[in-house]
Design a protein around this nucleic acid. Sequence first.
DNA 1: AAACCGGGGAG
DNA 2: CTCCCAGGTTT
Length: 320
Amino acid sequence: MPAVPTVVTAPAVRRPDAATGGDDPAGLRDVVVAWFDEHARDLPWRAPDRTPWGVLVSEVMLQQTPVVRVAPAWHAWMTRWPTPADLAAASTADVLRAWDRLGYPRRALRLQDCARAVVERHGGQVPDDEAALLALPGVGSYTAAAVRAFAFGRRSVVLDTNVRRVLARAAAGTALPAPAQTVAEVRRAEAFVPDDDAAAARWAAASMELGALVCTARAPRCDACPVRDGCAWRAAGYPGDEHAARRRTQAWAGTDRQVRGRVMALLRDALGPVPQHAVDAVWPDAGQRERCVEALVADGLAVRTPGAGDDHPATYRLPH
DNA sequence: AAACCGGGGAG
DNA sequence: CTCCCAGGTTT
């Protein structure tokens, strides 16, 4: 077996007796938390002066964007709109421009909707109740659990892609978790969460950090891993990814997402309304382009102003 | 359950 | 080049 494994796509050979690390949640927890105490990154949303709203903003930004790209954007964002009330009152066009190229701009719209909901439903204070958090726009099971843990120090089951991978390997002995989250997986994750609020919050941060820094997807750094000796995946001889055949790679070139991104970039960078011919220039396939522009309008990310004759074409802009 | 939604950087 | 990333919403 390799000292530092690479996740291969070959079929896995399963060993029924391999789960030597999965039977000791408390032991695994302790070494991960101890490792975290020494290796935690000094992220801005972990600073002592953080606010619940700042944590929520960071979680929404991090939903599909890596830490290194979120950090500077988060700082600028929180400086400009420190509270939910500030963001609720902002121009949506400014919000979308500040979101810049973080990706999935609908997240920016939902974040502003979330700010408005926090103001209207909760007096401008982020709730610590799970049901109230889940009811906020853009907040799903992961983000609700993360806000409870990282903003309020409350117990919750934080199960993101990193934690899923750590538990899949250390506890279940598989190379990677299933493509979609399973009920059994949530139950297993629950077994690892300490009863105590503070300990649960620390485990959440520590397990995520281990997945982000050591137990990475492609080339895990097992030689630097604190749970190496208790890892079921390592004990089983690093079997390959049993779900490899069912994982589909998301295409990018030529997709609607690329077209939408180009149109949004055009509208973001424009100083005023963008004439139809400028929009037409960003993508050659008229059918796909028009469909994407319609979708952006329907999503509330773009606004069309009808034209008036050949000399006055329709124009597009960001929503106010 | 599955489709849809951005963009950049690592390998 | 391919693959990855602190998910949520909609159908």
